[in-house]
Design a protein around this nucleic acid. Structure first.
Length: 211
DNA sequence: TTGTGTTTTACGACCTC
DNA sequence: GAGGTCGTAAAACACAA
């Protein structure tokens, strides 16, 4: 077994070097203890660099996913807002014309929001639309009995429900918790722990230059 | 062959326990 | 003071032109 391979094997077992192990290893390989120590120092530095690269990749993937989800939500929001405006306009027109306000058939994209307006249950959700619109008792949505309209109080249109688009984050990565602390480690520690388990990197040196 | 980029070894400065 | 990290120099190596 080459000296480098022996060192790599020792490094995998324990990346820190106690004095006794350093002496034993140096004797075994015919090297100066100082050389063994330096090799471990440099090997730790290389490992750290690789680890930073892996961490960066994980974070970038997570970021890209979030950006993608955000864009989808923005687009959907625009569609829903235009539908609300259109329906409101129709309601007002009918009311002014003396007709009875009726709600058109539910479309897939507007299903949630329309359900909020008409206060009916959405079959697939099993939850009342009103419940989904607001997380608390003080709903920002004001329902008019005669002609339902969603009054924008300044809060988001999005009710307090789970968004599937946002649920496929990397393992261990989750949205902001109630018990948030200021240390970002809580957010990344699990994710990094996962990547730490696959850290056998780097090619072996082409040549052992020591005497 | 040569220029260039990458990797490895080694060291000094500084930090932590 | 021992042993750690960090930054860097120098040598070795890989590879395209």
């Amino acid at each position: 077994m080459l000296k480098v391979q022996m060192l790599e094997k020792n490094f995998e077992e324990e990346n820190k070097l106690e004095p006794e192990r350093k002496s034993q290893l140096a004797k075994k390989l015919g090297l100066q203890p100082r050389q063994v120590a330096v090799w471990f120092q440099n090997r730790r530095a290389r490992w750290k660099t690789k680890q930073l690269e892996r961490d960066y990749d994980v974070l970038k993937a997570s970021y890209d996913l979030l950006v993608s989800n955000y864009d989808s939500i923005v687009k959907e929001n625009a569609v829903l807002k235009s539908e609300v405006a259109s329906l409101t306009e129709k309601c007002l027109a009918k009311e002014l014309g003396g007709g009875e306000a009726t709600i058109p058939s539910i479309t897939s994209t507007s299903e949630l929001l329309l359900a909020d307006i008409t206060n009916i249950s959405v079959p697939h959700s099993g939850r009342k639309a009103e419940d989904r619109l607001s997380s608390g008792s003080d709903s920002s949505a004001v329902i008019d009995d005669n002609c339902p309209q969603l009054i924008d109080s300044g809060d988001s249109y999005f009710p307090n429900i789970e968004y599937p688009q946002c649920s496929n984050l990397p393992n261990g990565l989750h949205m902001e918790d109630d018990d948030t602390n200021d240390n970002c480690n809580y957010l990344f520690s699990d994710m990094f722990a996962a990547t730490n388990q696959q850290n056998q990197e780097g090619r072996p040196p082409a040549l052992w230059a020591w005497p």
